[in-house]
């Protein structure tokens, strides 16, 4: 059995990511992601709200649709809150850094 050693250079190439590449890859910045996520949560809340109103008006007969929409909205909100806590924690950690 012939094993070949790892040849330097050609088989494994090391490409460090340049700053320019990273900027191109994620054209969206952080606040863009956050806004998008918040909009998604908001649309779930609005959907749950509309279903609740329809049910109260007697236009929707399926109670579980309403409950499920409310539950989804609640889970999304919990997830967003958790994300916000993490981000604020990270920010405070950086602000506490000794200079």
């Amino acid at each position: 059995m012939v094993t070949e050693g790892v040849q330097s250079g050609d088989s494994i190439s090391y490409n460090p990511l340049k700053k320019q590449d990273m900027m191109n890859k994620s054209s969206k910045n952080f606040s863009g992601y956050l806004t998008e996520a918040l909009n998604a949560v908001n649309s779930r809340q609005v959907e749950a709200d509309e279903l609740m109103r329809d049910f109260a008006l007697g236009q929707n007969q399926n109670l579980h649709d309403v409950i499920l929409a409310a539950e989804k909205a609640d889970l999304s909100l919990q997830f967003t809150l958790q994300m916000r806590n993490k981000i604020v924690d990270a920010y405070q950690e950086i602000m506490r850094m000794q200079i």
């Binding site: 399926n62 579980h64 649709d65 499920l68 539950e71 989804k72 889970l75």
Partner: peptide
């Protein structure tokens, strides 16, 4: 995802209610 499970089980709820 969890929402898919909810949708699938929700369709079961609709069917059994009917």
């Amino acid at each position: 995802m969890f929402y898919d499970v909810m949708d699938t089980a929700g369709s079961g709820l609709t069917a059994q209610r009917l």
